[in-house]
Structure formats: C-alpha cells, structure tokens
C-alpha cells in the first residue's frame, strides 16, 4: 500500500532535518510510540501502540535510517514490526523529502507499507485513515517541537 503525506512545518529546513533524522527525537512525535532505544549505528528498537476502537495493536520492531542526503534534503527510513498478540507484521519504507518554502519547510513522506496477517483484516480504507491521522499528528508535533 502506497501512502503519501505532505505537511508544512514552520521552521527552516536545517532544523527540521536535524529533528527528523534524530530517530528517537522524531519518534517522540509519533503518537503511541513507547521508548525508542538504539540497537546499532542508525538502528533502533521501538514499540508503537495503535488503537482503533476496541482493537489495540502493539507493534514491536526495528527502525533503521537507511539513507541520508542532507544536501538534497532526503532520507529513508525502514521499519519492521510485528504484533505478537494479534499476529501480524507491518513492514514500511518511508522516503522523506524536505523542501524549502521560504522560511518554512515542506515535509513530504512517501511510504510503502506492507501488512501481513491479521492486521490486514482491517482493510485498506481504515488503515489509510489511521496512517493519515498519525502523519498529521506527527507533522503538527514536529512544528510544535521546533516552534
């Protein structure tokens, strides 16, 4: 499933870059993320709680910063997580691009999300909505953090 999100962050590109490539700091802006701990160079372990009405997903897994190009304002993140209680895996690659917009920065995130197992039972419309909510809140939080 391909998702794309765009958000305007009211801060200069260099500051946004610093924050989004600091995985533990950026992760604090994703609602539902529990402590993210380093597990190697550019690699982290973390946990994300996603609640949809009575359904609670606890996604435990690895996040890695796989590529960074500060001059171009581009970074790639890969996440592999599973929910052991419900059974299911989520594998996502996210390409981030930061674009100067005057004094502000546009954050473009293109994600390719692969969902296997029970989590997929939700169906794409519901998953897409949830992803949209997470991304919107992520961008708002980045903006607040940098304000």
């Amino acid at each position: 499933m391909k998702l794309s999100h765009t958000a305007l962050v009211r801060a200069p590109r260099s500051r946004v870059w610093k924050l989004v490539t600091d995985v533990p700091a950026a992760a604090r802006c994703v609602p539902g993320v529990a402590a993210v701990t380093p597990s190697g160079t550019g690699k982290y372990k973390g946990s994300l709680l996603v609640q949809l009405g009575p359904v609670r997903l606890v996604l435990d897994g690895d996040v890695a910063l796989t590529a960074t190009d500060e001059a171009a304002g581009k970074a790639s993140v890969r996440a592999d997580a599973k929910d052991s209680r419900l059974g299911g895996t989520v594998r996502a690659t996210m390409d981030l691009a930061l674009v100067d917009k005057g004094e502000d920065t546009e954050l473009r995130i293109t994600s390719d999300v692969r969902i296997a197992g029970r989590i997929g039972e939700f169906g794409q419309p519901v998953i897409q909505r949830k992803a949209d909510q997470l991304m919107t809140q992520f961008a708002e939080c980045l903006a607040r953090t940098l304000a």
Binding site: P54, V55, R85, L86, G87, R118, E121, F122
Partner: peptide
C-alpha cells in the same frame, strides 16, 4: 475487559483475531 451484549460484532472480531 470487553463488553458484549448480542456478541455479533465481538464474535466476528474475535474470530478475525483482532480482539484478544
């Protein structure tokens, strides 16, 4: 804990493995 009355929706979600 999860509340049920007629348990139609619950039975489906339980069977799908979305509620535990």
């Amino acid at each position: 804990a999860h509340l049920v009355a007629g348990a139609t929706a619950f039975t489906l979600l339980w069977r799908q493995g979305l509620l535990r």
